[in-house]
Amino acid sequence: MNGTSRKLLAEMLGTALLLAIVIGSGIMAERLAGGNVAIALLANALATVGGLYVLIEVFGPVSGAHFNPAVSIAMAVRHSMPRLLLAPYVVAQLSGALLGAWLAHAMFDATIFQLSTRLRGGTGQWIAEAVATAGLLLVILRAPAGRVAAMVACYIGAAYWFTASTSFANPAAAFGRMFSDSFAGIAPSSVPGFVMAQMVGAAVGVAVHRALGLPPSEPPDTAGGAARPERPRV
């Protein structure tokens, strides 16, 4: 298996496991919380934080651990990854997200093929998704080397609670969760608004990063726009 194939496999597996963690922990939390939504959300958030940290550490050295089309687009625009890899990365991430939803259902003996009926939308939730994604990109781009996994996981855990949308911050996550009629699901009709807000947020995050200047740990671009050394990103 060549380097590109390994990267795509890592992105697909990482995204699949991330969605299995998000959806599976949501199913478990809803079953055990006895109707207490706050407890269910707390359990869902804690599982996501732990799982996300591990996945970034495991797959980061292989593919950069994007698991997120918004992140991959931002990296391609910034020449931090070859632009020819962008479309394959996104396909791998979306495929992984769908497989992760099905895996979660299989583990809990639920119907494999589902569509969510959980409507999520409105101005507040779209703003929340833009804020969550902007913050995610800012953390990724400015985290010191070696701290990306911990900082991203902590940020996502916090954003579960401070955003009205519970912080999807990821078009692949929205796509995968569309196929799960569970605690973590999102109705197909709600996905376009979320994805648009996420892309706006990603652009804002990159713009803020540029406005703040290069962090001390990040070298400047070399002449001709050569890519910086890739760090684990999600």
Rank of each mutant, 00 (worst) to 15 (best):
V22S: 03
L85E: 15
L98H: 01
G201V: 12
N68Y: 11
L115V: 01
F108L: 04
F162W: 15
V195Y: 09
A169Y: 04
R233C: 15
A128K: 06
A159M: 15
S165N: 14
R6I: 01
I73V: 13
P82I: 09
M12Q: 00
A158I: 08
R120A: 08
G213C: 14
P220K: 00
Q93D: 05
M81H: 09
R78P: 11
N2V: 03
G185C: 03
V191I: 04
G213H: 05
A223P: 01
V206L: 09
A76N: 12
G35K: 09
S182G: 04
V91T: 13
A134E: 03
G157A: 05
F162A: 08
S190P: 05
G96W: 12
A16E: 04
G225Q: 04
V90T: 02
A174G: 10
A159E: 11
A87D: 04
V90C: 11
A149T: 10
V191L: 02
G146I: 14
A128D: 10
I127V: 11
G60Q: 12
G51Q: 04
T166N: 09
F183D: 01
D181E: 01
F194N: 12
E129K: 14
I39E: 07
D181L: 00
E218K: 13
G24I: 04
V131L: 12
V37G: 12
L115C: 02
I56A: 09
N44A: 08
I73A: 08
G26S: 10
L86K: 00
S189C: 02
N68L: 05
V234I: 13
T48G: 02
L136T: 00
L8S: 10
A169F: 14
R177F: 00
I73D: 05
F194D: 15
A203E: 08
A145C: 06
L84I: 15
P232N: 09
A149K: 12
D181W: 03
A172K: 02
V200F: 14
F179A: 02
N44Q: 11
L214M: 01
R118Q: 09
T166A: 15
A65F: 13
F113P: 04
G176V: 04
S95Y: 02
P192Y: 08
G50R: 12
A153K: 07
S116H: 00
Y160N: 07
P216I: 00
I39F: 11
A132T: 01
A65P: 10
N170G: 01
V195T: 11
W161G: 02
A128G: 13
L141G: 13
I56Q: 09
T123L: 15
L137W: 06
L17G: 00
I127Q: 03
A128Y: 08
G157E: 11
T123W: 11
A226F: 14
R177I: 14
L41C: 11
A65T: 08
R142M: 00
T166W: 15
I39R: 15
V206N: 03
F179D: 05
P216S: 13
A197C: 14
F183R: 05
G121A: 10
A202W: 05
A184Y: 01
A164W: 15
G185S: 00
T222V: 08
M75S: 14
M199I: 07
F183W: 07
R228N: 07
L137I: 07
A172D: 03
S182N: 09
E57A: 15
A184I: 06
I39P: 03
A202D: 05
A145I: 07
P229Y: 07
G50N: 01
